[in-house]
Structures are given as structure tokens and as C-alpha cells.
Design a protein around this nucleic acid. Structure first.
Lengths: 111, 111
DNA sequence: TTTTAATATTCCTTGACGGGAATATTCCCA
DNA sequence: TGGGAATATTCCCGTCAAGGAATATTAAAA
């Protein structure tokens, strides 16, 4: 998860991923559309590849990159455990404040 | 989106968010559970706060931090546009390869 | 078989970021 | 009102990652 988020956190890499959302592309095409130098494009693609976000198909001397579904599934699964925060309006702040008061009260007493 | 991902990409901050998933906590509690020095906890919370991921409630000299739903909604919305990648098995690789061949064929001809 | 195209890799430099330590700030309480 | 607790901020330092430029690699084409 950390690896995935880290890969996506870099603006150019996020752009690459968004480009590939519409279908596979070669390194050159990616570099062109994002106005990156080819080496930087390759380097970013390497990071994305190591994070499992993309995979590559070699055709002659071109490399065609496309998205892999797995990390997105993983992200979705991770997000799932946060949905209750906005689906229900599950705040827990009231509970916490009461818990806090309880502890305050106990301070002078026993213990 | 970039700001959110960047905030989450740092391991300690990701841990903080995961802690807060179960409810609000003070800075001290967060620092304790993650075995962070208090200043580092505060600093990470600041980044999370700037990214809109958490909000703070001041009670006396304590600060109670809790998650904000908005950025998670945003992430979810972003992910939405990638679901087709694994929901349908939408590859577009075949299309791309055909398109490639078409261009190759045209190379010698006209143009 | 030399040349050219597409991509990857290496080296270098610079800037951003995280951690540690010290200090500032705010609030409560004796 | 002086001291201690909770938190924030600042400064300094080391590390790491991103960009630029040059070069290596591989495959196709002439």
C-alpha cells in the first residue's frame, strides 16, 4: 500500500497513470504527451512498474505500457475500511469526549 | 489529489490515518502508540491537516485529531474511473496493437 | 553492416523532506 | 503566580529522489 501510494504521489507518475487509464501507450507517446524527456519517462515508468501499477509488453524495440488492475483493487479494498466515515456519519467524537471526562474525573480519586 | 496522495505516502502518516480510522485521538496518544516523538507527531499531523485529511478540536491544552471524510470521498471518486479496468476486463491492448500495425503499414506508402 | 529509432541506464547535482534536539506557547492547577 | 503538562515551532543535518545530460542497448531499416 505504501509503495502504491508513494508511486502515485509524484505528479508526473500520476499523470502517466491517468494517461494509461484510456489504454496502453509506448514510452515515446507518454513522454510526448506529458512533455517529459524520454529518460525521465522511462524512470517514472520503472517506479510504477516496481509498484506493480503497470506492466510492459515488448514489441520489437518498443515497450508498450498498460495498467495492472491489482493495485487498484488493493486501493479500493483499503478505502473500503474508511467508507463508514462518510457513509454513516460515524464520528465517535462524543464518545471520545465522554471517555476523556471519565479519565479526568478519576484523576483525583483513586489510582 | 496529489496533496492527498503525498500526505498518505509517508509511512508514519499512513499509520496515523489508520489509527484515526477507529476514532479521534490526541497528539500524545498518537505519539505513544506509534512510538514517535511528540514533535514528529505534531509535524505529521500538520501535513495531514494541510491536506485536509484530518481536523482538530482544541480542548484546553489538548488537540483532538479526527479524520475528515472529504478527501476519502475524493479518492473514492478518483478510483471510480479506474474500476472498468478490473470490473470489465477492459484491456484495449488488442486495439492498440492493431492501430500500431496500421501505422506501420502506412509508413512506406503515402505521407 | 552502417545508420537510425526507441528505450534503458548511469552519473551528477540540487532541492525537498524527515528526524532529533531545543525552545516557544498555552493551559491547568497547587 | 509559578510550575508542570500538552502541543507547536524552529533550526540543523543527513538522506533520498527527481531532473538533466550523456551514454548504453537493442532492433529495425537502408
Amino acid at each position: 500500500m505504501k509503495t502504491i501510494l508513494n508511486a502515485l504521489a509524484e505528479p508526473n507518475r500520476l499523470h502517466i497513470v491517468e494517461l494509461l487509464r484510456d489504454g496502453p501507450l509506448t514510452v515515446g507517446e507518454i513522454a510526448d504527451r506529458l512533455e517529459l524527456n524520454q529518460p525521465q519517462a522511462s524512470k517514472h515508468l520503472r517506479v510504477l512498474s516496481n509498484a506493480g501499477l503497470v506492466e510492459v509488453l515488448a514489441i520489437a524495440n518498443r515497450r508498450i505500457y498498460k495498467l495492472r488492475p491489482e493495485p487498484f483493487k488493493e486501493l479500493d479494498f483499503w478505502l473500503e475500511s474508511y467508507r463508514h466515515i462518510w457513509i454513516e456519519r460515524f464520528d465517535r467524537l462524543d464518545d471520545y469526549l465522554q471517555e476523556l471526562k471519565r479519565k479526568e474525573g478519576n484523576r483525583d480519586d483513586k489510582q
